[in-house]
Simulated scan of single mutants.
Amino acid sequence: MEALYLKIRDELARQIKNRVYREGETLPSEDELAERFGVSRPTIRRAIQELVDDGVLEKKPYRGTTVCPAKIEQGFTTMLRSFNEEILANGRIPRTTVLTARVQEASPEASSRMSVEVGAPLFKLVRLRYAGDYPNVLVSSLIPLDMYPGIVEVDFSQESLYAYFRKYGKPVVRAHRQLEVMKASSGMAALLDIDEGDPVYRFYTTATTEAGRVAEYTTATYRGRSNAFEFDVSLVDGSQVNG
């Protein structure tokens, strides 16, 4: 016989799917739900935890249990397109807050990754990017100033970085990405509105122009519970895989 908490989990999931409880809405208290379903609080708590583990609900101190937004299907791992294009394709409204926009010298690490001299001027751009009302990704980018000298004058709360590259006549045409799954630090958690220790996806991207110059080196940290990423995989020689 199916456990009672699983039946309640499925009923709550059905109500969320049917928009009885909408994205961002707070569920009734455990006491109210226990009375409504005629069960104990521990049973309700277990049903809710199942939905939290599935990324359907999230618990926030002093805010109760709220309905998570549907996961954003990220296709940028299989194609080159901007954050704004990704979010619009998912039916959300993108928004950007610029946290840092300044010129700095290239460190030895940046020099190695970007094929520039140590001390070369770089434009550092840090943005917190939203999908609707929710912070979705923290993006830190380094751009060679000699390639895009007018970049310091651009308002990147309104302008897309990749759109700017295209308008400047030096668009990005290829990118190499590295993925790391990690736990959110306290500062990262505060910016992304998640709990410290929650899983996040971190992508390291080196993007180049047609001429082979590195246009940007970027670290992007995504909310784990809000995003799903697509990957295309094929056999190198077309032979059959067994096992």
Rank of each mutant, 00 (worst) to 15 (best):
V173E: 07
V173F: 01
R174E: 06
R174V: 09
H176V: 02
H176Q: 09
H176N: 12
H176P: 00
R177K: 15
Q178K: 09
Q178P: 00
L179E: 11
E180Q: 06
V181Q: 12
V181L: 08
V181C: 03
M182C: 11
M182A: 14
M182R: 14
K183T: 12
A184R: 04
A184S: 10
A184C: 04
A184T: 01
S185V: 00
S185C: 00
S186P: 00
S186C: 01
G187T: 08
G187S: 11
M188V: 15
M188H: 14
M188N: 13
A190D: 06
A190L: 07
A190W: 01
A190T: 12
L191T: 01
L191K: 11
L191W: 03
L192I: 09
I194Q: 06
I194A: 04
I194K: 05
D195R: 15
D195W: 06
D195E: 13
E196F: 04
E196H: 05
G197A: 10
D198A: 14
P199Q: 10
P199R: 13
V200C: 11
V200L: 11
V200Q: 07
Y201W: 04
Y201F: 11
R202H: 09
R202G: 06
R202P: 07
F203Q: 08
F203C: 09
Y204E: 14
T205Y: 10
T205P: 05
T205F: 06
T205C: 12
T206E: 14
T206P: 10
T206R: 15
A207L: 03
A207G: 07
T209C: 12
E210H: 15
E210Y: 15
